[in-house]
């Protein structure tokens, strides 16, 4: 294995579908369609992609919850179909959202129960749970019922639950979804700590800043297929040729966006506005030459600034997902 702890080869998953009316069994189009990648020990590997792209399905296959329709993978050198019990001892999955916890019992009781499923001796279990509660900042609420927890507290408990077996590999499926910025930041801190502890992490997220901040390596999946892979720098490099111009203006109308879009060499225009101003992020084929024509088209919009920007991961992501790369 060397230091490759996850190796996926041509993974395909078609969910069986039962036709509601006739009860006839069919398989739908593949949710994951030939995914291959390798994850090295200690990495934070980001799997990004739009809704329904197949991220969760990929995680479930690697996490032994789903059998691939074809292709295969090894996790820690074990086959995900045959040796799933061995794999389960050394991995865990943490999902975002507030489902997946027993809400009538306390946080501590949840953790004890899940620990017991890993045959952790009682003394070690209780020591570890104490540590975990501290790590995720739930010491005070540990003996409160989960139904009284806020969304953020539930996410913390989820994280602690995912760590009860001290796994070597953690799958984090949108761990910051629906959290406020402050708690999101804390969760990102926890993710970094896990990585520092030597764990290998596979992370999915729709937040590009988060991916940029955390991930070493990124794969972008669209419609079940990997469309791009590399480090953040490499992905950005791929869109650097078509750099980005940012324009800040006071007045904005839809037809101006149209007008900018129609300029030769403009690939993509994204606009965000607040009460005082609008910011256009314009992907262009060649940044240098485009500033002037764009500024000219924005003449009547009371320009604050027009500048050439370094592409962000989000620009790279957008261009790969939308497919004008």
């Amino acid at each position: 294995m060397g230091d490759r702890v996850i190796v996926a080869e041509d993974l395909v998953k078609c969910y069986p579908r039962t036709n509601g009316k006739s009860g006839e069994k069919k398989t739908s189009k593949p949710a994951v369609d030939g995914v291959s990648f390798e994850i090295r020990k200690g990495q934070i590997f980001g799997l990004l992609g739009p809704n329904g792209a197949g991220k969760t399905t990929t995680i479930k296959m690697l996490g032994t919850l789903l059998i691939p329709t074809s292709g295969g993978a090894t996790v820690l050198d074990h086959d995900i179909v045959k040796d799933y019990m061995e794999i389960r001892k050394r991995i865990n999955i943490i999902s975002g959202g507030d489902r997946g916890l027993y809400y009538r019992i306390s946080g501590r009781q949840n953790l004890r129960f899940f620990s017991d499923l890993y045959r952790i001796p009682r003394r070690l279990r209780d020591v570890r749970i104490e540590e975990l509660l501290q790590k995720v900042g739930l010491e005070k609420a540990a003996d409160q019922r989960v139904e009284e927890y806020s969304r953020g507290m539930k996410q913390r408990l989820h994280i602690a639950r995912g760590l009860v077996n001290d796994p070597d590999i953690l799958f984090l499926d949108e761990p910051t979804i629906g959290l406020d910025p402050e708690i999101s930041r804390e969760v990102r801190g926890m993710v970094r700590d896990m990585s520092k502890d030597g764990k290998t992490l596979l992370l999915t997220t729709h937040n590009m800043n988060e991916a940029e901040e955390l991930c070493d390596d990124i794969n972008i999946i669209v419609g079940g297929k990997i469309v791009a892979k590399g480090t953040i720098a490499e992905l950005k490099e791929a869109v650097r040729k078509k750099s980005v111009i940012e324009a800040e203006v006071r007045r904005m109308t839809p037809d101006v966006i149209e007008a900018v879009h129609s300029i030769d060499g403009v690939l993509n225009v994204a606009c965000s506005s607040d009460a005082y101003r609008s910011i256009l992020r314009i992907q262009v084929a060649d940044g240098q030459d485009m500033v002037l024509p764009i500024a000219k088209r924005l003449e009547n919009c009371r320009i604050i600034r027009v500048s050439r920007e370094e592409p962000t991961l989000e620009d790279a992501y957008m261009s790969m997902v939308i497919g004008d790369a």
Partner: peptide, 18 residues
Amino acid sequence: MVGTLESLMVTPTPLMEV
């Protein structure tokens, strides 16, 4: 219903024992 089934399934304990 409460979404805990997958958290159970991902552990090495067979569901039957739980």
